[in-house]
Simulated scan of single mutants.
Amino acid sequence: MVSIREVAAAAAVSVGTVSNVLNSPDKVSPATVARVQAAIDELGFVRNDAARQLKAGRSRSVGLVVLDVGNPFFTDIARGAGARAAEHNLTLLLGTSDDDPQRERSYIDAFDEQRVFGLLVSPVGDDFDRLTALRQRGTPVVLVDRDGSGTDFDSVAVDDIAGGTLAVEHLAAIGRRRIAFVGGPPELRQVRDRLQGARNALAAVPDAKLEVISTPTLTVLAGRAVGEQIRDRPASRRPDGIFCANDLVAIGVLQALALMGDVMVPGHIALVGYDDIEFARSAVVPLTSIRQPSFEIGSTAIDLLLRATENAGRHPRHVLFQPELVTRLSTQA
């Protein structure tokens, strides 16, 4: 194993300068950074992160636990967080709970054992005991895709109640009156808030009805199963507008309806998704969706984490972005 002293000797600098190049390169001149990096590359030096962690008390890694890494919305959040973390010499470690509270707890414990710099988490439920204990041990925690108002945690999210309201107001504005909300599980705060927004919108439309169809997951397959059920109903019992809790579910519903030529989108059923992932605009029928600034959510989460490490004891900050309705063919006349 090549030591840091050997790198310093090869670059003709002090051990402290090599340490600064590795941990705080902004403190070192570009020419010196280049000389030290050349020595590192030539000697094949790999620093002992475990030893550095023990000395510093925590690592330069940030843990991120999302609900579903297969959902492009969370992938974009991770990209935003990773890009901002890299600007501060931090590395992002990603885990997915798959909407499973036990798996979420396992990731929190694993990141705690690694003494991560901080933790970003999109929580499955409302039990924050582990997160509270983690923060009390000195590790900052930021809630992601969850409004933390009323808690002691920093948070960054989108106003999902407003998003649900936008979606169903749009369906009502184009004349749809038999509206179905499709999504689940209901334990997810995001699902509950989007449904509440849908109900708020229809409260102002007396002749409209809302049907709630719960799904076990927010996946394409879950949406396809619901779409098949709706497709098999008599025409008089089908909704004429569907609002899905995310775009993956909406794409599944669209796939099921598109398999049969007698149920047309948007002719018979107008369809709205949520998140505005890339697949929404490239679907066989481009999907109207509620846009969330996913990349900005991730980068803002890192900003809040850094703020928490620099200002211990400050009041938590809650960043709440506003959603945007993006209309496409799935709701056009």
Rank of each mutant, 00 (worst) to 15 (best):
R238Y: 12
A12C: 07
G241Y: 00
T300A: 09
D129G: 12
V265D: 05
R224Q: 12
A56R: 15
D154S: 12
V36G: 03
Q332D: 15
T32F: 00
Q136M: 11
P234Y: 06
A51K: 14
A280R: 12
V21Q: 01
A198C: 11
T327Y: 00
Q136C: 07
V18K: 12
T96V: 00
P216A: 14
R238K: 07
A78I: 02
Q190E: 06
A308S: 14
R328F: 09
Q322T: 12
A172C: 06
R317C: 13
D26A: 08
F117W: 12
A11C: 05
Q114A: 13
N48F: 06
S289C: 04
D99H: 02
D193W: 00
Q136A: 15
F279T: 07
L67F: 07
Q114D: 13
G138T: 11
T327W: 00
D160E: 14
D147I: 08
I77C: 04
N71D: 15
T217I: 08
K27Q: 06
G223C: 11
N23K: 03
F117A: 13
G273E: 06
V141W: 01
A81C: 10
R105N: 15
F181M: 07
S3P: 00
L221F: 08
E296Y: 10
A172M: 03
L271Y: 00
L119Y: 04
Q292A: 05
L134Q: 05
Q332S: 14
S155C: 11
R233A: 06
T132W: 02
L54C: 08
N20P: 00
L202D: 03
G175T: 05
A283W: 07
T151Q: 04
V253S: 09
A81V: 08
T165I: 04
G261S: 15
L221A: 15
H170T: 09
F153R: 00
V65D: 11
L259F: 05
P316Q: 02
F153G: 05
I230S: 05
A180G: 11
L305K: 02
A31D: 07
A250I: 01
E42T: 09
R79C: 05
S3L: 02
S97R: 03
N246H: 09
V272Y: 00
I230L: 12
P186R: 08
L305S: 04
V15N: 14
V28G: 02
L43N: 06
A180Q: 01
F74D: 13
A10V: 05
D276A: 07
A203N: 04
R79K: 10
L325V: 03
G261L: 12
A222N: 01
R176L: 14
I251D: 14
N71F: 04
S106E: 15
A256P: 07
V46N: 02
L166T: 03
D152C: 06
A208N: 06
L119F: 07
T300K: 12
V285Y: 07
I277D: 11
L218C: 08
V33T: 03
G184S: 10
L119D: 02
V66Q: 07
G273T: 01
E228T: 13
Q53I: 05
G150D: 11
V2I: 15
